[in-house]
Design a protein around this nucleic acid. Structure first.
Lengths: 212, 212
DNA sequence: TAGATTGTTAATCGATTAACAATC
DNA sequence: TAGATTGTTAATCGATTAACAATC
């Protein structure tokens, strides 16, 4: 099983490919060429072929790609042939919104636990799941198979929370705080940050640097 | 005013630099070297100096960088010496959470309008702002100085909504839907996507491709 | 002055694009 | 078979890193 390390740039494009193919499939499109894909996705056809060939190539000369097959293969690479259990820690406005967000379940990510330290929230039910106290977090993580933890606690609590979960064996974090978990947690732990502030800042940069 | 185009990779790092410097400033740190920055931010010292030198260089040989000055200069580049007006369109769970999110206001982004099509929501007040009907969106955008629109409507409405706002002169969009606004809207319009699904997908990829 | 650390040029590395032979 | 389009190699482009002279 000799793998030639696949670059992060390629990986990062996979979800986008997947989503687009899923849509094509829904529309009943059967085949598509790299050129057509490139027009729809605003990348070069060459790049698309290169990307796919990192994984062995899923097409056929003279034909192109079978939409359904390509979708499934990319899904497998991402790991979408499995389901994942998520917990959300910190049921503030954002945590609550994520608990209700249908997109996760629709794609195979089930939320199986919600946690907050506020006694007023503990016991309330969101989307059929009761909020548990943060003191139960450790035991819950130890007793259940949790794949991904969504961190929505206040920034000051983020590292402590994540570290506890790492101890209990959780390896993947979706981080909505400004804490730099990636740098602070041990190697082999995966962190994806959603830095909402950074995102709007990039918009103001663009607004200020376009008027020429 | 000869500008040598600054690469997006550099721009994308600016918010992170800014946030870290802001924190250093709060802690009372006065000066810092590129080497110290590189340790804290997990990039090379060389890259940090390169990045800053795209804008002329803010340091001093033998001394390093003055934290406050550097923070202010990067802030100016991002455009944080100004304030911005935002509107949020689509007050579902996510839209509501964003309306209550303090991070925006804390960084100079004021939310001045909320819009939804659901009559039950219209008139309700979130964070001192009354939700308006979506039918008022066009006139509101025309009558007020709106810099950034946050798109939280259902995906099927996203392009229509954004197009209307483009007509009214809005140039920057923060997009929480899966719609590919970037590709569909005219040139010169800035879109930042927050694809929550893509983010968790990258975590499942990592989970599946680490166990060696 | 000597030491430190930047600014900046040159070297390296990696990712994207171009081109075309392979082949369906 | 002829046409189409991939898989794949080679060329280009851009971003990161290394190195060091400039200078505070």
């Amino acid at each position: 099983m000799e793998k030639k390390e696949i670059s992060r740039a390629v990986i990062n494009r996979l979800p986008r490919y997947y989503r687009f193919l899923k849509e094509l499939e829904k529309e009943g499109v059967e085949r598509i060429s790299s050129l057509e894909l490139s027009r729809a996705l605003d990348v070069t056809a060459s790049q698309i072929r290169q990307d796919f060939n990192n994984f062995g190539g899923f097409g056929q000369q003279g034909y192109g790609y079978n939409v359904q097959h390509l979708k499934e293969e990319i899904g497998k690479i991402i790991g979408l042939d499995q389901c994942y259990n998520m917990i959300i820690v910190g049921i503030g406005n954002l945590g609550k919104a994520l608990a209700k967000y249908p997109g996760f379940a629709n794609n195979g990510y089930s939320t199986i636990g919600l946690f907050d330290s506020d006694p007023a929230k503990i016991g309330t039910v969101i989307n059929d799941i009761a909020v548990r106290g943060i003191d139960e977090l450790g035991s819950f993580a130890a007793d259940n198979e949790v794949d991904i933890a969504v961190i929505c606690v206040p920034r000051t609590e983020a590292l402590k929370t994540a570290s506890l979960l790492v101890e209990k064996g959780i390896k993947a974090f979706m981080n909505f705080t400004q804490a730099d978990l990636e740098h602070e947690l041990p190697d082999g732990i995966f962190v994806q940050n959603v830095y909402l502030i950074d995102t709007v800042m990039l918009l103001s940069y663009d607004l200020n640097n376009s008027k020429k």
